[in-house]
Design a protein around this nucleic acid. Sequence first.
DNA 1: GAAACGTCATGCGAATTCTTGTTGTCGAAG
DNA 2: CTTCGACAACAAGAATTCGCATGACGTTTC
Lengths: 222, 222
Amino acid sequence: MRILVVEDDADLNRQLVTAMTEAGYAVDTAYDGEEGHFMGDTEPYDAVVLDLGLPTLDGLSVLENWRRDGRTMPVLILTARDRWSDKVAGIDAGADDYVAKPFHMEEVLARVRALVRRAAGHASNEITCGTVRLDLRAGRVTVDGTPIKLTSHEYRLLSYLMHHQGKVISRTELTEHLYEQDFDRDSNTVEVFVGRLRKKIGSDMIETIRGLGYRLGEAVDG
Amino acid sequence: MRILVVEDDADLNRQLVTAMTEAGYAVDTAYDGEEGHFMGDTEPYDAVVLDLGLPTLDGLSVLENWRRDGRTMPVLILTARDRWSDKVAGIDAGADDYVAKPFHMEEVLARVRALVRRAAGHASNEITCGTVRLDLRAGRVTVDGTPIKLTSHEYRLLSYLMHHQGKVISRTELTEHLYEQDFDRDSNTVEVFVGRLRKKIGSDMIETIRGLGYRLGEAVDG
DNA sequence: GAAACGTCATGCGAATTCTTGTTGTCGAAG
DNA sequence: CTTCGACAACAAGAATTCGCATGACGTTTC
């Protein structure tokens, strides 16, 4: 899962990035509206944390531009506590959620979790696929009830696949969502991680669709 | 659009129902947890407004039960302003949004709008032709409900034909769309793939129009 | 400094795609 | 009605691409 954080306050920005990274996301960051707008328009994010008060281009405009351009990724906006009218405007501009400043980091994390899982069509914090169970909140994975240890990249990979069960995910899509911006990867890194994951959760879980990508889980009609 | 409001405070309940109705929704209402739980489990709502503090069964449990039962409709929870941990719990239990009491009615409306709008955009796009169904997002093909395996070229071919149902597609058009630039192929590759496809999805699906090309589905004038 | 993690390169094995050749079918002309 | 030519379907081997395991190397972490 790849997240974009747009926040001009350096301190807050760092805090957010740290928390998100620890939670297992790949995080990109921007410090003003224009930069943020550009990044959100050009890179595929699974969620965005967007401050409303930004230099060069305010958050609301950034959001409106994204929506006008057809970008549908979930957006969580950060706003001053007492400006409730801003919230309404933000939501009508296409925000999916908001948090009032100052906030508890845990709350932001919970909301981002919710946005990501909802975007994937899941309602609860536990995703299962066969005998594999993923606890999003704890970042824990069990197979047949026994917990297994995953490295951070392995976890991100599994998480992304779990969120998109039944779908064929191309290798490019995986690289884009697993890594942060520096993506000159023309190597077989993804394949290596798929291999390692298979070794840990069982090789039948992830199906290879030659020439197209990978798929986790059985047929889901919908 | 059909909305369920679960709120025990009679005054608030009435206000919510009035506002929702004026906004153009069909509104059902419940005054305690058990009633609300039952209604949400048995009727198809497009969104639910759920108070957390309820008699007979608290809102959080109602929500958890719904999610456990696989109900995925968007839920907006109402909570006391200062209990931020409740919010986190609610969100992790599967709430899609929350509003703190006391709230501005306008804000609740904006949020419900957002929820409904987002849920609507979640439909998976698929094309069908007779018994053949193609799920574009999942990259999956089923015939008579049973999934079939296609190689990447077969899939691309089918996809193109499905997108142009009823039209006669020439062989050159197919080669140009299945391959990148180098379409100086003077071979019968396309025919081979058509043959393989027919074998997998049934030979009646793709009709041969001698000298012109192929057609999937019924003829369409144009 | 050691262990864990992520990245990269190589070679093998296998699935897919391409080619070739033959058989089958349709349409029109004699 | 028959025959001929062109086009399409099928089959099977050849060629190529693609995916995977493995192990080495660089980097970070404790």
